[in-house]
Simulated assay, not measured.
Amino acid sequence: MNQTAPSRLPLYDATAEAASGVVIERYSTSFGLASRLLTKHTREHIRNVYALVRVADEVVDGPATEAGLDHELARTVLDELESDTERAIALGFSVNPVVHAFARTARVTGFGPELTRPFFASMRMDLDRTEHDQESFDRYVYGSAEVVGLMCLRAFVYRAGRPTFDDAVLVDGARALGAAFQKVNFLRDLHADFEVLGRSYFPGVDLRTFDEATKDRLVADVQADLDRAATTVRLLPADARNAVGLAHALFQELNDRIAVTPAHRLITTRVRVPNPVKARLAAQVLAGRAPLRSHATHHRTGGTA
């Protein structure tokens, strides 16, 4: 009598999921903290998305170069990562655990190349461009951040029986929140992007003439995205509401701190949210005492980051 050998795929799936979890815990305390508020299944999907995004980002943002790859070889590695990702989504397997976990999430939650291709196109822009005009900036932010918000949205809603969910309001909110996260990070990393990587993301912004008026304009643009996103958080499934609310609160806090940091300090200092403040915001969200606020007109002068 023949006996079927036990499947080894669940072990590989679990190992790949664990690898992605390590990536988010090591690279981002903010997203790691917010993801803990999700249910187990949703948390795994969000970590899987984040891990692949982070690995691709490392190909173009320093580690690959430090390992000895020139731009052309980095491009080849990025192309191979994209090919492996699409193949894994189609077949359900990759020898790269991070890609395997991401593909599992894509297959379960219902997205594919319509979101991954814009993402990888933006990553390639980091190898090709050092400055952006408005058109290329918008395209970059969409591919590098807004589509990531859409991937996360699929993970939030698929268990409600809507794997192809396309509600315009939630889609707009997911894109807005992704854009806000990306633009805040650009503001935090002005010095590193310009001096270390030789990049200037914001169209027409020159760090040599960076002033309060420029900073205030960029902060207001981020705030507009945060305000758009705030109107949709309450529409998310219950298990995602607190996690996304905390992520929103953390980046709202960052934008507020950037707003009160003098322009001359912002180009030399990376603004952070201290861990005790993160813990306080998390406690407020869990207690239902952290309303999603509009800070569009909130500015204080003379403050410190």
Rank of each mutant, 00 (worst) to 15 (best):
Ala103Ser: 03
Asp57Arg: 11
Leu38Ala: 07
Val77Phe: 09
Val49Gly: 03
Ile46Leu: 12
Thr42Arg: 08
Ala103Met: 00
Val98Gln: 05
Val108Leu: 08
Arg75Phe: 11
Val59Glu: 01
Glu80Phe: 12
Leu78Gly: 07
Gly112Asp: 13
Val60Glu: 03
Glu72Cys: 07
Glu82Met: 11
Gly92Trp: 02
Phe93Lys: 08
Thr65Leu: 13
Val59Ile: 13
Val60Ala: 06
Ala51Leu: 07
Ser83Phe: 15
Arg87Gln: 10
Arg43Ser: 15
Thr42Gln: 04
Arg54Tyr: 04
Gly68Asn: 08
Arg54Met: 05
Leu81Lys: 04
Ser94His: 01
Ser94Tyr: 01
Ala103Trp: 01
Glu72Asn: 13
His100Asn: 10
Phe102Ala: 00
Glu44Gly: 15
Gly68Leu: 11
Arg87Pro: 06
Ala88Ile: 08
Ala103Lys: 05
Ala64His: 01
Leu69Met: 15
Ala88Cys: 06
Ser94Pro: 05
Ser94Ile: 01
Val98Cys: 03
Arg47Asn: 09
Thr109Val: 04
Asp84Ser: 08
Pro113Ala: 15
Arg47Ser: 06
Glu44Trp: 09
Lys40His: 08
Glu44Cys: 11
His100Leu: 07
Ala103Glu: 03
Gly68Ala: 05
His45Glu: 10
Ile89His: 11
Glu66Pro: 03
Ala74Pro: 03
Val60Gln: 04
His100Ile: 04
Val99Arg: 01
Val53Pro: 04
Thr76Asp: 14
Asp70Val: 05
Glu80Asp: 15
Glu72Ala: 14
Ala88Val: 06
Leu38Arg: 11
Ala106Leu: 02
Val59Ala: 01
Ala103Gly: 04
Ala51Lys: 03
Ala101Cys: 10
Leu37Gln: 05
Pro113Cys: 12
Lys40Met: 07
Leu81Met: 09
Arg107Thr: 03
Tyr50Leu: 11
Asp84Ile: 04
Asn96Trp: 05
Ser83Leu: 14
Val59Pro: 00
Asn48Glu: 12
His100Trp: 13
Gly62Leu: 05
Ala106Thr: 00
Val77Ser: 09
Ala74Ser: 13
Gly110Ala: 12
Asn48Ser: 10
Ala103Phe: 10
Arg104Trp: 00
Phe111Glu: 05
Thr76Val: 15
Thr109His: 05
Ala64Asp: 00
Ala56His: 02
Glu58Ser: 04
Arg75Pro: 11
His71Trp: 09
Leu91Glu: 15
Leu52Met: 06
Val98Ser: 03
His45Asn: 15
Asn48Arg: 13
Lys40Ser: 14
Glu82Asp: 06
His41Ala: 15
His45Pro: 11
Ala88Asp: 10
Leu69Trp: 14
Ala106Lys: 01
Tyr50Asp: 07
Ala106Gln: 01
Thr85Phe: 12
Val53Glu: 10
Ser83Ala: 15
Asp70Ile: 04
Asp84Ala: 02
Arg47Ala: 07
Phe111Thr: 03
Glu58Asp: 14
Glu72Tyr: 12
Arg54Leu: 08
Ala106Glu: 00
His41Cys: 10
Gly92Gln: 02
Ala56Arg: 04
